[in-house]
Amino acid sequence: MSKFLFGRYLPLNSIVHRLDPRNKLLLSFCYIILVFLANNWLSYLILIAFTLGAIRASTIPLRIFVRGIRPLIWLILFTVALQLLFSPTGGHVYFHWTFINVTQYGVVNAGYIFIRFLLIITMSTLLTLSTQPLDIATGLASLMKPLRWVRVPVDTLAMMLSIALRFVPTLMDEAQKIMNAQRARGVDFGEGGLIKQAKALLPLMVPLFISAFNRAEDLSIAMEARGYQDSEHRSQYRILTWQRRDTVTWLIFALGLALILICRRW
């Protein structure tokens, strides 16, 4: 299961795990702004220190983050290389050939981009590792509530998201089952040329879609039988509570922001 996106939650009981998911979502978002505000080595150093501190507080081993970044490393290196080779002129020119320009400005920028990537990926990994998908969904729905005023069906969207998450394992089991049945009928999944592989998908996808539709129909009948009319006129069993520790995180954030602003001027 560990290789799947939704299985990536790591159930520990740290202070980071216990934070309000709304707060974690907001913090992650503002953190990204912070990352783009930073513009010199010192400010990035401060951000790295804060990020490591957050990881420490989550009690999640660092190597898990390293493992999480590994699949993305080529994307990062590609972007860094682009920045390095094609940046506009500025500062000392180290290397020049037709349209390729390696300048002092380019090297520094490439370094910054590399760090930005690492920081943002690490922090979003921390978010998913420390927060259950369901809580992320509930948190998102709660944060989107103001959109009600512009007639966005926030509660319905939240219900859809929650049901989708609930059925991910069910449909994964189903897919496994159908794959087994078709393998027993002589289908080779993931073998042969591209066309052969695409053809092998049909006996998997058709039954899977049909099953999903049947389930959806059953589910809608069951929901109606249990009194579900619309998403607006319902009370909430699962609610989120803002604790003191959530407020404390913002004090820490404010400290970080202040330090970075000072560094920018410096």
């Binding site: 087994n180 078709q182 027993a184 058709v206």
Partner: peptide, 13 residues
């Protein structure tokens, strides 16, 4: 070895 899984009708496509 022929396999008839639980609810084999779900393999029809």
């Amino acid at each position: 070895v022929g396999m008839v899984f639980q609810f084999p009708e779900s393999q029809l496509f």
